[in-house]
Design a protein around this nucleic acid. Structure first.
Lengths: 343, 343
DNA sequence: GCTTTCTACTAACACGTGTTAGTAACACGC
DNA sequence: GCGTGTTACTAACACGTGTTAGTAGAAAGC
């Protein structure tokens, strides 16, 4: 271990040229003329010695780290919700293709003003992707206003933010249409999180709006909040179904919550879909294999992650420009957890 | 944006001392004497200016990046298996506590000899944690033999490896005991992956051994291989149950696979647990909320990740020494998916 | 009063790279 | 023969930090 590092100096000596030449060959912009023969010789020497440039030195002089930061607002969500890994995968793959690295950083519960400063100011990263941002995160807003290269997976409703989100109106509209067509009129919801997470609020608003379009109303007491986990979904659904036993359809905030809803329904002796229809959100890979197979709204987390990464590369000048806000369109997937309303 | 960076030079000027003094105050080993008053003044100046040391410069001179690499052997597993996020969470949290950063790197399908060299030789990371290593990964073995600080979450059965794994004998023994006590004698298995992943092989071997202890035999045709996803579990279980309709109990390679097994059983008209008992592995957060609630073997992924990180810190000299191989003991959790064997 | 020890600080180097300005050699045009 | 380019290369600086060797001044020892 700790055998002496090979530096560009060693390569230069072996190739019989100056260190400058080595640098120009291996990472020069081509603005300086070099004979093809010298080029070959240097590259050969580098290859022979197994030369890998020291990234710290490179960062120092260039100012770029070829690394992006990925901030997971509340990392404990990782434990229970399978959606984040999809996004992570998309981001990681896109970065790998660009030769970039991904630094994963969790934020604790504390959201003090300087939360991101350490990462940003230490120049460790060139840009940032923030997952599940919360409206009102001041540290985040200040970073946006400073103009730091930043992409949100989600939204904080800031005019200058760059973000990837999913529209909800059309798909939830279609889902409501589907459920209403099956005869349901008393519809409830179990969200995936407390208030403040924009996509929770957006999904709920879209549900309410779609119901109004059918002369229905989403009652306040027909909503209970989950907290990311299946267990929280089970508890919230139990509360909901005991308070409002007349409900015949429930929209779950996401598929993990839906697992809990299915479990709660079963525990209360309600058969799905005969007595109760359940609609999920996300279409995670396990959704078709639940009992019963879940009707849900498909969002493509991998794509969302990939696009977030591409938008960031664009801001860093490495890719074609994107519009500042990308909104993806999810899609209704019909399976077995929705059926005709009971009489 | 891009306002001039604040360097230690600026802090020095403001505090009226030399740059050296600033460096000594903020990160010196205390071997040089400094008056308390100067200390205060420097710290005050740094605070006022919001000084954050440039990490690249620091890395360059110190040789440490305070970053560990986390290699996910096959990142697409992220998409379908919820166990990896548990480990990731544990690692991330431990690193955050130590002030370390985590660089996540996926390996493509290609496993050429120099797979890890880029990360290691570029000095971007101080140490490495490898998830789901595969026996026979030469690049990995060569890294181990070079003595690079490396911790495996899993094993490649190398004599010098440092690894965290789960024992399987006792817990699987208990599970077999439980199932046999319920009257089952024809037992099958659906693995979570093809051959070559050590924990697949270990779980299968432990199952076979435990069965022998009860004068039973795990037939070759009572085993089918899944491939991480619930879908693959469904397919493999369907094949298995059609080939061996006499089986009354099935061990699933993990809980995600178990989702598929439950789904397949239902599709074939086999009730769980009345007609078929199912045992999972991992006790993921959703396991209690499946239909029926899953009997499974609890492994603590977060703890595994935390310990892996601590072992690495130990190797880097930042923490107390660990034994080179830690084996955690999982625990049988009884729920509703196992019941008396049908007559 | 002279040397010695101690305190508080700093000058100067090192880390390994990218890049700009500059040079030496040579060809070319007139 | 002299300026003008062109080609192929290199010396020297910059990036921002950690650390060692060294210095000036004061205190202490005798």
């Amino acid at each position: 271990m700790s055998r002496p590092r090979i530096t560009s100096h060693d390569v230069a000596r072996r190739a019989g040229v100056s260190r400058t030449t080595v640098s120009l060959v291996l990472s020069g912009s081509g603005r300086v003329a070099l004979s093809p023969e010298t080029r070959k010789r240097v590259m050969r020497a580098a290859e022979d010695l197994g030369y890998k440039p020291n990234s710290a030195a490179r960062m120092l002089v260039s100012g770029n780290s070829e690394t992006i930061g990925l901030v997971v607002s509340d990392p404990s969500i990782l434990l229970v919700d399978a959606f984040i890994p999809q996004i992570l995968y998309g981001i990681e793959r896109a970065n790998r293709e660009m030769g970039f690295h991904v630094l994963v950083e969790g934020l604790g519960a504390e959201e003090r003003p300087g939360a991101y400063d350490h990462l940003v100011e230490s120049r460790r990263i060139d840009g940032l992707i923030v997952l599940n941002p919360r409206v009102g995160d001041e540290a985040l807003v200040s970073l946006i206003e400073k103009g730091f290269p930043l992409v949100l997976v989600g939204s904080v409703r800031h005019k200058d933010e760059v973000s990837v989100t999913f529209t909800t109106r059309a798909a939830i509209g279609a889902a409501v249409e589907h459920v209403v067509a099956l005869g349901h009129r008393r519809i409830g919801a179990v969200t995936f999180s407390p208030r403040g997470y924009t996509s929770r609020d957006a999904r709920l608003a879209a549900l309410g709006a779609a119901m109004v379009g059918h002369d229905l109303h989403l009652d306040e007491d027909a909503i209970t909040d989950g907290n990311f986990s299946a267990e929280s979904g089970h508890r919230a659904a139990t509360t909901l179904l005991e308070r409002r036993p007349d409900l015949t359809a429930v929209f779950a905030g996401n598929d993990t919550i839906a697992i809990g809803v299915l479990s709660a329904a079963r525990a209360l002796g309600r058969r799905v879909p005969e007595d109760l229809s359940v609609v999920g959100f996300d279409d995670l890979p396990f959704a078709p294999w639940l009992t019963p197979a879940l009707t849900t709204i498909r969002t493509d987390g991998v794509r969302q992650g990939t696009i977030a990464a591409e938008m960031l590369f664009a801001r860093l000048g490495h890719a074609a420009l994107h519009p500042p806000r990308v909104r993806l369109e999810p899609e209704l997937v019909l399976r077995r957890s929705t059926g005709p309303a009971p009489d």
